[in-house]
């Protein structure tokens, strides 16, 4: 009979070795809010569960080189409780804190959200817009990769056998910068994003946007970096014309499917709506920062 095994290593290297030895059926466990559901539903056959929560580096938030290092097993609720992190990256935190219920927030992690590789993962567009990177540990050692390189298709990642994400790194914040994330769901809570949009902006002293990054979730097999949408904003003060260009560019970048959560037509339109709204929020936040 298929048997689930569980280990809780205390170092990243032990975890990588165990994952490698466990083969295709081995999975790292951080929050478990996706993993346990998949195991229970039979979508994932029982194999080896490698719990990351006893690895010191995998837990908690550290400020390093002006940026933030977030351990892979840090639950969403702990992110929201971190005042400096929330002040620097409000969009990333609001995205992470939109995942599931309060109960889910007590467990779910951004690294898990990333590596589950759902096209609708809430935190990923915000992380991509933030130009976050992740520290990957594997049998061959450690490497750093941009978050957008992790998911390659729904449910599939670029991680090699034995590799797992140990930390997520958010870069140092430049002045007059801010981000925002919005998603559309049918209810007010508890749903999977029908569309999610992360926007990250930097303004000059006059309020002109000098840098922008727009990432779209749930409108393609993986998160879409909408470069044209970002370009639509750069050089503007987010006037109506810029917002209209952003809307058009976001819709053009979206390549959604129709499914039980929404039609392709609806998703395309909402990508434009949310891009405008998220940009407006991010802009207002950036203006308020020093």
């Amino acid at each position: 009979m298929a048997q689930l095994d569980f280990i809780a290593p205390v170092s990243p290297e032990q975890a990588a070795a165990a994952l490698l030895a466990g083969g295709a059926g081995a999975r790292p466990l951080s929050g478990g809010t996706d993993l346990l559901v998949q195991l229970r539903s039979g979508r994932l056959p029982p194999g080896l569960i490698v719990d990351l929560k006893r690895i010191p580096e995998a837990i908690g938030i550290r400020q390093e080189a002006g940026g933030f290092v977030i351990g892979a097993a840090t639950p969403g609720i702990a992110l929201g409780e971190h005042a400096a992190l929330t002040a620097a990256w409000p969009g990333v935190i609001e995205a992470a804190n939109l995942i599931g219920s309060t109960q889910v927030q007590g467990r779910a992690t951004m690294a898990g959200n990333l590596c589950n590789a759902s096209p609708a993962a809430d935190s990923v567009p915000a992380l991509v817009a933030a130009r976050a990177t992740c520290l990957i540990v594997g049998p061959a050692g450690r490497r750093t990769a941009p978050v957008e390189s992790i998911a390659v298709a729904p449910g599939r990642t670029s991680l090699a056998p034995g590799e797992f994400v140990l930390e997520i790194h958010l870069p140092a914040r430049s002045a007059r910068s801010a981000d925002a994330y919005l998603r559309s769901i049918p209810r007010t809570e508890m749903d999977i994003a029908v569309v999610g949009v992360g926007v990250n902006l930097t303004l000059d002293a006059d309020g002109v946007i000098t840098d922008a990054r727009v990432a779209l979730g749930a409108v393609g097999p993986t998160v879409i970096v909408a470069d044209a949408a970002a370009e639509a904003l750069i050089g503007s003060k987010l006037d109506d014309a810029a917002l209209a260009r952003l809307d058009t560019a976001a819709r053009a970048a979206a390549t959604p499917i129709s499914d039980k959560r929404g039609t392709a037509d609806y998703r395309t339109k909402i990508a434009g709506v949310l891009a405008r709204r998220a940009a407006t929020i991010a802009y207002a936040r950036a203006e308020k920062t020093a």
Binding site: P186, R187, E189, D191, I192, D259, K260
Partner: peptide, 16 residues
């Protein structure tokens, strides 16, 4: 049935 769970069947939650 594609939405045989509370996640996608979507009964009202308290904030709705």
């Amino acid at each position: 049935m594609e939405n045989a769970g509370f996640l996608d069947y979507r009964v009202p939650v308290a904030s709705d």
